Simulated scan of single mutants.
Amino acid sequence: MSTAVSGTASDVIGVLVVDDHAVVRRGLSAYLESTDGIQVVDEAVDGQDALVRLRRLAGAGRLPQVVLMDVLMPRMDGITAIGAVLAAHPGLRVVVLTSFGELERVQAALQAGAAGYLLKDADPDEVAAAIRAAHRGDVHLDPAVAGRLTRHLVSPPTGLAALTARERSILALVARGLSNRQIAAELHISERTARTHVSHVLTKLQLSSRTQAALVAIREGLVPPPGA
């Protein structure tokens, strides 16, 4: 296993910038290079490229301390990459910088091990603050993201709001009368996975039958009523 080191002075935080948009990467790198105490050691175009570059940097003794990671990228997305990066280099810290602040993405990133989550409309100074916080071992969240997490913890969502996007799709298919096998075929998943999703939907909605689930889906407008 590699440990995070830097080829620069010990008080300088090395950063790998990972984003599939060249303009974003170069803009971030230019800003960070002008920021005291932070040095961009390399750039990567996606999660897979990040792993390759980190391996090379580790071999050269220039492994950064922090990875600044986008979420939606080709080949390997940011959420998957967080886990892969931390598995290969457990001393690193990963800060997410993305345009997407949905609670599901935030929770997935934090569960994968992210040490921060920022939206791309964040002030440049906040990006630097998140990098420094990650380096200290703290977690830095965008204020809007932190607010969503707090509201979720204080008042957990109920009804359809408690379902993930996939679970809402499952609910709509249940309302259409599809069996677990048919749902599996429709979504290209295993029948066991479909059955698990249906069970989660019923549990979250506090329902005891597929018929009740279908009625909820119709009432909430997920599917039209029969004969409509």
Rank of each mutant, 00 (worst) to 15 (best):
A161C: 12
L141G: 00
S190G: 06
L163N: 13
R176S: 09
T196W: 04
R195F: 13
V145M: 02
R148C: 10
A194C: 04
P156Y: 03
R195Y: 07
P156V: 11
L160S: 14
R166E: 02
I170P: 00
G177N: 04
A194I: 04
A161M: 10
A162H: 04
A161D: 15
R168I: 07
I183G: 06
A184W: 02
L173K: 11
A185K: 11
P156I: 14
A175F: 06
L153Y: 02
P143S: 11
P157S: 08
E186M: 14
N180G: 12
T193C: 05
L173G: 03
R168G: 00
L153W: 06
A146H: 01
V174N: 11
A144L: 10
R176W: 01
R176H: 10
V145T: 00
P143V: 09
R151Y: 14
H197P: 00
T164M: 01
E191S: 11
R181N: 11
A184I: 10
N180I: 10
R166H: 06
L160A: 13
S169E: 13
A194F: 05
L178P: 03
S179I: 13
A144F: 07
L163Q: 13
T193P: 02
T196N: 12
H188T: 15
L173P: 00
T193H: 03
A162R: 05
R192E: 15
A162K: 03
T164N: 04
G177I: 04
I170M: 07
L149N: 01
E167L: 07
P143K: 06
A144G: 03
R176V: 03
R176G: 06
R168V: 01
I189H: 04
H197D: 13
R195L: 12
I189Y: 05
A161G: 07
I183R: 12
S169F: 09
R151G: 10
A165G: 01
R168H: 10
A162P: 01
R181A: 14
R151M: 06
E167S: 05
R181M: 14
T196Q: 11
A165I: 14
R181W: 11
R148K: 15
A185F: 00
H197Q: 15
G177D: 05
I189A: 08
R151D: 10
N180L: 09
T158Q: 13
R168L: 07
S179Q: 09
L141I: 02
R168A: 09
P156T: 13
L163Y: 13
S155T: 09
T158L: 07
A146W: 00
A185H: 02
A165R: 11
P156Q: 11
R181D: 13
I183W: 06
I183V: 09
A184T: 06
L160E: 15
P156G: 08
V154Q: 15
L178V: 08
A161I: 09
T193I: 02
L153F: 05
A175T: 03
